[in-house]
Simulated assay, not measured.
Amino acid sequence: MCGTEIRTELPLAATELSGCSCCTPGARTQTPTPVEGSEYWVEGLTCGHCVQTVEKAVNAVAGVESATVDLAAGAKSRLTVTGEVAATAVRNAVTGAGYSLAANN
């Protein structure tokens, strides 16, 4: 745009593990601010793209006001969901996106 490049810098949290096929090893991701709501633990997330995929799937569920993921690459990531929605609907959205909820959910 007229030789001017606009970039937005976001706070990032480093990850020591290699990312999925869409990210390079040592990729960084933004840590979302937690919100009050129901918490679930999601397995298999490795990068920001994974986070966006889960958030988009859960946000599409009827009754969900918001869904945010706190990424912990290589470990269980926290999914916080606000709104009136059944746990089975959240589980179905997460598994439909290609990930799984931890057994303790």
Rank of each mutant, 00 (worst) to 15 (best):
K76Y: 12
A67H: 01
V69S: 10
S77D: 10
T95S: 14
V69H: 07
T80H: 10
A73L: 06
G83L: 02
V94D: 01
D70V: 06
L79F: 13
T95Q: 14
A75R: 14
S77Y: 08
N92A: 10
G74K: 04
G96S: 14
D70Q: 15
V69P: 05
A86E: 15
A97I: 04
V69A: 09
A102R: 06
R78W: 05
A93Y: 04
A87G: 10
V94N: 02
A87N: 02
A93K: 02
A87P: 00
L79W: 08
L101H: 03
S100L: 12
V90K: 01
A89E: 07
G96W: 09
A102P: 11
T68S: 14
A102Q: 13
N92W: 05
R91E: 10
L101P: 03
L101D: 10
T80L: 09
A89S: 15
A67K: 00
N92T: 10
A73S: 13
R91N: 08
T88H: 10
T68R: 15
G83C: 03
G74R: 01
R78K: 14
T88V: 12
D70Y: 03
K76A: 14
T88W: 02
R91L: 09
G74S: 06
T82M: 09
E84L: 04
S100Y: 13
V94C: 04
G96Q: 13
T80E: 00
E84K: 13
D70T: 12
A97P: 02
V94L: 05
T82Q: 12
T95P: 00
V81C: 04
L71V: 09
S100N: 11
Y99F: 15
T82Y: 01
A93M: 05
A93V: 02
A97T: 00
A87Q: 08
T82L: 05
A75M: 14
E84I: 13
T82F: 02
A72I: 10
V69G: 05
V69L: 09
Y99R: 10
R78T: 14
G98M: 13
E84Y: 09
Y99C: 04
L101Q: 00
S100P: 00
A86S: 10
K76R: 15
T80V: 07
A87R: 03
V85N: 02
V85P: 06
G98V: 06
L71M: 07
V90H: 00
V90T: 04
A75V: 12
G96Y: 11
A89L: 12
G74I: 04
T68A: 11
